[in-house]
C-alpha cells in the first residue's frame, strides 16, 4: 500500500500541492464574494432562484388520487400562466398559506400542487381538512423533482409565465401581504 502515492517525483509533488491549490481557489473565491458583499452586488440572503428567467425543469409526476398526475408542459398548456406550489401535510406555513391559495383559486388562477415527500393518506387528509385549491395535485415522493427545482423547504411557489418561463419564486408561505404586494401585480403583468 506504499504505492498509494504516484511514483514519479513530479506527480507526487502535484498530488501534495492539490490541498494547497484547492484552499487557494477557495480563499480567492471567498475574497471576491466578500468584495461583492461590500459593494452590495452579492446578497447571500436573497433567495431568488436560478430558475427565474429559465424554463421550468422537466418533470412527469404521478397524481395524488383522485387527481391525475401532470408534467411541466401541462402547467402552461393552452398558453396560460400557472403557479406551481410545493407543499406537505406536515408543514405549518402550508396550513397558514391555505386561505391565500383558496383566494387565488377563486380568482381562477391555475394552481398546480406538488406534495413533497408526503404520505398519500396524509396528503389526502390535509386537502380534505384545508380545502383543495389545486387544478391537479402530483406527488414527488422521492424528492427528485424538488432537487431539480432547488427547493429550500416547503412551501415554495413558482410563477410560470404563458411561455413556460419561471418569473418568480417564493420560499415560504404566501401571506396576505406577499399576495397583495407582490404576487397579484405579477399575475397582472404576466397574465
Amino acid at each position: 500500500m506504499s504505492a498509494m502515492l504516484p511514483s514519479t517525483p513530479l506527480a507526487r509533488r502535484a498530488l501534495l500541492a492539490a490541498p494547497l491549490a484547492l484552499f487557494g481557489i477557495g480563499g480567492a473565491s471567498a475574497y471576491i464574494l466578500l468584495q461583492r458583499m461590500e459593494r452590495g452586488t452579492y446578497d447571500p440572503h436573497a433567495l431568488s432562484s436560478m430558475l427565474v428567467g429559465k424554463k421550468l425543469p422537466a418533470f412527469d409526476l404521478p397524481g395524488q388520487p383522485p387527481s391525475p398526475g401532470f408534467t411541466n408542459l401541462d402547467v402552461t398548456k393552452g398558453g396560460r400562466l400557472g403557479l406551481v406550489n410545493f407543499f406537505a401535510s406536515w408543514c405549518v406555513p402550508c396550513l397558514q398559506e391555505a386561505p391565500q391559495l383558496q383566494r387565488l383559486a377563486a380568482m381562477g388562477v391555475p394552481l398546480w400542487g406538488i406534495a413533497y415527500k408526503d404520505k398519500t393518506a396524509a396528503t389526502a387528509q390535509f386537502l380534505a381538512a384545508n380545502g383543495n385549491p389545486y387544478r391537479a395535485v402530483a406527488r414527488d415522493a422521492s424528492g427528485m423533482t424538488a432537487i431539480n427545482f432547488g427547493l429550500y423547504g416547503v412551501p415554495e411557489t413558482y410563477l410560470v409565465d404563458p411561455g413556460g418561463i419561471v418569473r418568480w419564486r417564493w420560499a415560504g408561505g404566501i401571506s396576505a401581504d406577499v399576495m397583495g404586494d407582490t404576487l397579484l401585480p405579477l399575475l397582472k403583468r404576466y397574465g
Binding site: L33, M144, I147, L151, A171
Partner: peptide, 24 residues
C-alpha cells in the same frame, strides 16, 4: 454547502441546495 457560493461566483446565479440533495 458551498455550491451556492460557486454558482454565485461563476454563473452569477443564486441557487439553493437543500435537504433533498444531502439525503440522496
Amino acid at each position: 454547502t458551498i455550491y451556492p457560493l460557486l454558482a454565485s461566483l461563476l454563473f452569477h446565479a443564486q441557487i439553493s441546495v437543500g435537504a433533498p440533495y444531502f439525503d440522496a
